Amino acid sequence: MTTNEDDLPVLGLEPYIELIQTTSSGNSDQEDAKLGLMLLWLSDYVLDVMDIELAPFGITESKLDLLILLTLHGERRATPSAIAERLGITRASATSMIDWLEKRNLVVRNHSKEDRRKIYVSLTDEGRTFVAEVLPTYWSSCASNMMDLEPDERKVFEKLVNKLLKSIQRRLEVER
């Protein structure tokens, strides 16, 4: 791999471990900090892979996540603030994504008949068709993340991921 003189060199994990050792507080377990950092890197890479897989459809994982949320809630009305809360993003981020999806006729905003100040977001027919077209690639990409794990490793990994998910959901007081 060639590098440009302006590129940052690959550091690997060791300099981060040294930084953890010199900057973590006394009540932080350094080995746990290293594992947590590796988990953050893994989540970044998983999202990067997903965005690459979704690029031919012209959408990112975060925008598709919003469409999937609306798909799963069917005819139930969803406000931008409820969407933001469920996705764990700011209201401004949700509004920006809704604007982007609305410009592409994948979602529509409707005012409440009972309270005109309240806005609901729903999928358009085109949005439902789009989600149906993208989901096979999405699921394939999700599955590809597990391809290097042996069956027994997958079982252990699933148990660990479930445990971490529950713990983090409790901390954030949010669930999917």
Rank of each mutant, 00 (worst) to 15 (best):
L135R: 08
V161K: 07
K163P: 00
G127R: 08
S24G: 01
R86T: 15
T124P: 12
L13R: 08
L149I: 10
E61N: 07
L47T: 03
E102L: 13
K166Q: 14
R116M: 06
N110E: 11
D148T: 13
S141Q: 07
L47I: 06
V108N: 01
N145K: 04
D6L: 15
G74F: 09
K163R: 14
P151F: 02
Q30V: 09
A33L: 07
T79F: 12
I83H: 07
G88Y: 04
N162L: 06
E150K: 03
N145C: 05
R109L: 08
H111D: 11
N162A: 09
R176Y: 08
G74R: 11
L67D: 05
I59N: 04
L64D: 06
L165R: 06
L42G: 05
T3C: 14
G12C: 02
L165H: 05
R128L: 15
T124E: 10
L37C: 00
P56R: 08
L70I: 04
G36F: 13
Y120I: 03
T71Q: 04
I83P: 03
E158D: 13
L47R: 08
Q21T: 07
G36D: 01
S43A: 05
L54Q: 14
E153M: 09
I168A: 15
A132R: 13
K103Q: 12
E133A: 15
D44L: 09
R170F: 11
P9V: 01
F130V: 01
V121G: 04
L101Y: 02
E150P: 00
T23E: 13
I83L: 11
M146W: 15
P9Q: 06
N27G: 01
R170G: 11
S93F: 02
N162I: 05
R77F: 04
W41D: 06
D148R: 14
G26V: 10
E114W: 11
K163Y: 13
F130P: 03
T124W: 08
S140E: 12
D99V: 07
A33F: 00
Q30I: 10
